[in-house]
């Protein structure tokens, strides 16, 4: 267990030492989204019976939880691979399950920290209430865990930074931006509404938002089932790749 705790602590320390970049920057980005979209749309748009700015905040929080969980595990692994320092975690007797847990939990911790930062920075601009905190926590945890595990796969698969950037720009970014962070899917044409139901991130955002408003596009029980099922699949896939030493132990 000491090996696991050390790797977990090392991963926490790694992003905390550059917190200005890993926590501060995404909080600022989310704040800018809120100020710009809020300024333009707040007077004109209401969603689920609340002002647009209020509707937007939970989506921004969850989007940053997911993107930063992904960024943490993927960037840590690819940096270690490219610099060669990955050898320091491959030589010791750390079981692959502990390796997985340390990377995922540290990435989730960064996601939650950024999410909390976004919430604290944006809460002054809205009248946000928390209706069901357990739902908020559950979606943040499983959503963050899913993206952290995806980040591990991306970090292990990528051999160059541009491959990781492609993963991020062509998969993660579209999935999060087209998930209903900035809108309710019921404002979309029917085709896009249907398509949105195939996007697992939609369920994460929608379920997370339910915790704030008690209203959502899909019942939170269904959303959580989808998110947990996706997490279980990616969890099993990542563990199996680590067990085989895929791209780490040739």
């Amino acid at each position: 267990m000491i090996g696991f705790w050390t790797l977990f602590y090392k991963e926490l320390l790694r992003f905390w030492k550059v917190a200005f970049q890993t926590v501060g920057a995404p909080v600022l980005t989310a704040l800018l989204y809120l100020l710009i979209f809020g300024h333009v749309l707040d007077e004109h748009v209401q969603v689920h019976g609340v002002r647009y700015t209020t509707f937007l905040v939970p989506g921004l929080v969850m989007m940053q939880v997911l993107q930063n969980a992904f960024a943490n595990s993927s960037s840590s692994l690819i940096q270690a691979k490219i610099t060669g320092s990955i050898i320091f975690v491959l030589l010791p007797p750390i079981p692959y399950s502990a390796f997985f847990a340390a990377y995922v939990l540290a990435a989730v911790a960064r996601g939650l920290m950024v999410g909390l930062g976004v919430l604290l920075a944006t809460v002054w601009f809205t009248e946000l209430k928390i209706v069901a905190p357990l739902w908020i926590f559950a979606f943040a945890l499983f959503g963050g865990g899913l993206f952290a595990a995806l980040g591990m796969i991306a970090g292990i698969w990528s051999e160059k930074f541009d491959q990781l950037a492609a993963f991020q720009n062509f998969l993660i970014m579209p999935l999060t931006m087209l998930s209903g962070v900035f809108y309710s899917i019921y404002t979309l044409p029917e085709f896009w509404q249907r398509l949105s139901h195939y996007n697992p991130v939609f369920y994460m955002i929608d379920g997370f938002r339910y915790g704030f408003f008690g209203v959502s596009d899909v019942a939170p029980e269904i959303s959580l089932t989808v998110v947990v099922a996706c997490f279980a699949v990616v969890f099993a896939l990542t563990l199996s790749l680590l067990k085989r030493g895929w791209k780490l132990r040739a």
């Binding site: 090996g3 050390t6 790797l7 030589l91 010791p92």
Partner: peptide, 14 residues
């Protein structure tokens, strides 16, 4: 020192 402490931890030494 951090590098060596971390490496010790990986081998189960606190």
């Amino acid at each position: 020192r951090e590098t060596l402490r971390i490496q010790s931890g990986y081998f189960g030494i606190r």
